[in-house]
């Protein structure tokens, strides 16, 4: 059994509390930044900046709190497929809505 354990695709990596602490600080700074940015009138850029900050925060959570950075290729591929499928579905839905006259009454 101990022989087989070595065939495991990756070593189990224990993320240190220092990393968790750094990510917590980054997430709190991100939250402060997004609240501050929302009070500045940037026109169409407002939602884009808000989403960019949210995506950055979500990436930090996925990579470090959810250990994907230290996970097997299978996990990384699974996460990537999920994000890719979600964006594809949103893209196809939007392609349909913007290419019709729906909602123009």
């Amino acid at each position: 059994m101990s022989e087989e354990a070595k065939h495991s695709e990756h070593e189990h990596h224990i993320v240190s509390p220092k990393v968790y602490g750094a990510i917590l600080v980054a997430l709190l700074v991100g939250t402060a930044l997004t609240v501050w940015a929302s009070y500045v009138d940037l026109g169409v850029l407002n939602p884009i900046i808000a989403l960019a900050i949210a995506c950055t925060k979500a990436t930090l959570v996925v990579l470090f709190f959810m250990h994907v950075k230290y996970s097997s290729t299978l996990t990384k591929l699974t996460v990537f497929c999920g994000v890719f499928l979600f964006l594809t579905l949103i893209g196809m839905t939007l392609a349909d809505y913007i290419s019709r006259a729906w909602g123009q009454w």
Binding site: T34, V35, S38, N46, A50, A54
Partner: peptide, 8 residues
């Protein structure tokens, strides 16, 4: 949810 509902 927070930026999309509250902030933008």
């Amino acid at each position: 949810l927070f930026p999309l509902l509250y902030l933008i």
